[in-house]
Design a protein around this nucleic acid. Structure first.
Lengths: 238, 238
DNA sequence: CGGCAGTTTGATGTTACTCAATTTAAGTGG
DNA sequence: CCACTTAAATTGAGTAACATCAAACTGCCG
């Protein structure tokens, strides 16, 4: 599980929270912050940050805001692979690949940090704790991918949406203190639809259903969980 | 892409083909074959080889036959995460995790090789080429998972099945020479159904459809591709 | 010959999609 | 703060895709 801590590598850290284990390990190995092998930028909401098949010398971390990783199909369909929260690497495997196999967009205004891949790899060799942290990220991503696959293959619409919400809630709670079951929630229904393989219309109906049954309410970018046990009953696989 | 080569670490190698890069790298580092940190066994078709949450000191490779990785839900539903072919690690990340986050079953009679995790890790430290090979496996698995996710989230039944077949065909062809577009194919329709999130009844209908349209024929454990361009038109997500 | 596992086929039901209209919310500029 | 504009969410009606249930068929093996 991830712990709450301010962003250590990002110069914009006063504006948000990062602090994954991977990031901490990298920082540990580096004497000076804001070294010249890192760069940072702020991107507006909706802006595409990375494109499939694009070559990059950098490994990216989302330092602030939300983003998402996705595949775009030629006919316009889009699959959102996962959502990126502060502290997340775009993908753990991108430390070893110079080409993105996915695209990334900013969901809100976001802070993105890039680190030279060869520098990251050099630190990997020098410090086995970084390698271990990276291996853990890989394993966590792989397990999350397997769970998403199960959700899309086996779950009904209600189950998929409940599952997505619970998964996001756990990740948000690991990064900031949650009071009264109110979670920041910048997703549009279109994002949910593209993540769980439904249409926006159907997502809206399920949300209405949940609202009417007193399970959750979404408004003003805030997700309020009214009946957590019921949400878990619907959405927890195992 | 993987190359055709006999299984190097497995004592049963005359009975099948393995030869992933990862395996070759491991062998490279080891003077004697059949070292005492490896063990091998033959498991009958249908036998469960690994169970979710189970702890193991070993890292497993499928040396011969076919297997599959899956999640079992309490209500009986099952999601097949991927199929294992000779030479495949059960999962690349299992080199770092002592607990399976998935279950594995033998699809045909299969040969399984287990290697002490600490021995594998020791070789990882000693030989950077092994680490690189493992990183490549991780990246390949992650990309495959993202593609499967897209297939389940966005594709119609026809597209999903065509996609699965093409994906398997490429992997089989990387391990053995294919003549006349005839591929060994030990899957039951139930396996396909559980892999692509459909019912067996619907899988059967799609197969009939493909057969009637002269695209593929499956019989006697052999998949014959009659019209490859058409199959690719349906199933390639690019 | 009987039994079993796997596949095929038909009839019917349900879930989720499509299309279209309407309402609500979120900005924007005056 | 209010009219205006635009994006997002909601609702209804009709439809397509896939599931469910049940029966029949096939090949295989004892």
């Amino acid at each position: 599980m991830q712990t709450v801590s301010p962003c250590v590598t990002c110069p914009h850290r006063d504006q948000g929270f990062c602090g994954t284990l991977m990031e901490k390990r990298l920082e540990e190995s580096s004497a000076q912050q804001r070294a010249n092998w890192q760069h940072h930028r702020i991107v507006p909401a909706g802006k595409q940050i990375a494109t499939r098949n694009e070559v990059s010398e950098d490994v990216f971390v989302l330092c602030g805001g939300w983003g998402f990783r996705f595949f775009q199909l030629p006919d316009g369909r889009r699959q959102i692979l996962n959502f990126l929260l502060p502290g997340d690497l775009f993908a753990a495997t991108s430390v070893f690949e110079q080409r993105f196999h996915f695209s990334v967009k900013a969901l809100t205004e976001a802070q993105v940090s890039g680190m030279r891949r060869e520098e990251v790899q050099a630190r990997l060799d020098a410090n086995p704790r970084i390698l271990m942290a990276l291996a853990e990220s890989c394993a966590a991503e792989s397990e999350a991918a397997d769970k998403s696959l199960t959700a899309l293959g086996q779950y009904s619409a209600e189950e998929r949406i409940a599952h997505l919400l619970l998964h996001l809630m756990r990740r948000i709670a690991a990064r900031s203190v949650i009071r009264e079951q109110r979670y920041p929630f910048p997703l549009r229904q279109q994002h949910i639809a593209d993540a769980v393989g439904l249409t926006t219309v159907h997502v809206s109906r399920i949300f209405s259903l949940f609202r009417d049954r007193g399970i959750i309410v979404v408004s003003d970018g805030i997700l309020t969980v009214v009946n957590l046990p019921e949400l878990e009953r619907i959405g927890v696989l195992n």
